[in-house]
Simulated assay, not measured.
Amino acid sequence: MFRDSSDGVEEYTTSVTGFINKCTKDVAPTVTVRTYPSQKPWITGNIPIELKGRAAAFKERDSNPEAYKKSRCALSRSIKQVARTATRPLAAVKISQMQALFFLGGQRSLVLGALLCLNYYIKALGAASLSQVVTHPLMKSITYWPQLVLGLTFNWGELLGWSAVFGSCDWSVCLPLYFAGVVWTSIYDTIYAHQVLDDDIRVGVKSIALRFQEHTNNWLSGFMMAMMLRLVVAGFNAEQTLPYYATLWLFTSHFRYVYTLDINKPEDCWKKCISIRTLGLFLFLGIVCGNVWKERRYTLFPRV
């Protein structure tokens, strides 16, 4: 066919090559993969450069204070270029750093006041979370797993809440529930991270989204299974009842929802992120209804 329609060897070769390329594009699946130099995205963007400049100017701040001031301003401008932080109070200069510190101090004082009203067990447990609170903001510059550290920090309140009600932790229930919350936080924050991936690259921070990229869906599905297993173990050890397990059954329908996540569409990421929040509300209602069912059962059929 090609030989009859070609006038020479060169045209014949071009026709055959073009046909092969077309067949390859039509049949072979294509996958878009984001790659970075040595898989180290933190070496790109202006933020690392400005940080080094500020560090150098800081060493010579006594002899050249003006250069140090300019380096700080340059760093501030680079950070404000990140879209998701541009409207935040500090980045938008709606409040001063001193006002932010006063607000933070007020929040810490309220938490400390509530903690001091509780027993020594809870005070020690609360003090143990301080290391996570301090180190969490630094994790995005150190590891690809900052979402995991965020989960460890956010869900510490579950241990404190259980201790505040019962006096101490029942580790057979609290640990599975705590680690289920850690995995849950990692899931929704990883989905959120895919919305702002370009900003993270520009700023030079790391995340699970950058670590797994196109393989994120598979990993998130694995996270969901690990979370489900821990919730089942926690429910079993807490002697939960039918409403709780019925809620967990709803979670299984969410597996496909997470697996079909389109990480290249921010609107789909936001939709899936919000759905996980709604799922949390259903889990809360399942726990409440499960406890009510359990109390009613024990009222009708007391323990021997």
Rank of each mutant, 00 (worst) to 15 (best):
R3F: 06
V9L: 12
C23G: 12
C23L: 15
T24Y: 08
V33A: 04
R34K: 15
Y36T: 11
P37Q: 05
S38F: 13
G45S: 09
I49M: 04
E50P: 00
L51H: 04
L51I: 15
R54W: 13
A56L: 15
K70R: 06
S78R: 07
T85I: 15
A86H: 08
T87H: 10
A91K: 10
M98L: 14
M98C: 09
F103Q: 13
G105I: 04
L112Y: 10
L112A: 12
G113T: 13
A114D: 14
L115P: 08
L118H: 07
K123N: 11
L125P: 01
L125W: 00
Q132F: 05
V133G: 07
V134Y: 03
H136C: 11
H136G: 02
P137Y: 02
L138P: 01
L138R: 02
K140Y: 00
I142R: 10
Q147V: 04
Q147K: 06
L150C: 03
L152V: 06
W156M: 03
E158C: 07
L159M: 09
L159D: 04
S168I: 05
S168P: 00
D170W: 00
D170G: 00
S172T: 13
L177V: 07
A193D: 07
L197T: 11
L197K: 13
I201E: 11
G204Q: 05
I208Y: 06
E214G: 01
N217I: 06
L220T: 04
M227I: 03
L231W: 02
A234R: 02
F236W: 13
F236G: 07
A238V: 02
E239W: 02
L242M: 10
L242P: 01
Y245W: 05
T247F: 01
L250A: 01
F251I: 09
Y257C: 13
V258M: 01
D262K: 13
D262V: 10
I263T: 06
N264L: 14
N264G: 05
P266R: 05
D268K: 08
C269E: 03
S275G: 02
I276N: 12
T278E: 14
G286A: 11
I287V: 15
W293T: 15
K294A: 06
R296C: 09
Y298V: 08
T299C: 07
L300K: 10
F301T: 11
R303V: 07
V304S: 07
V304N: 02
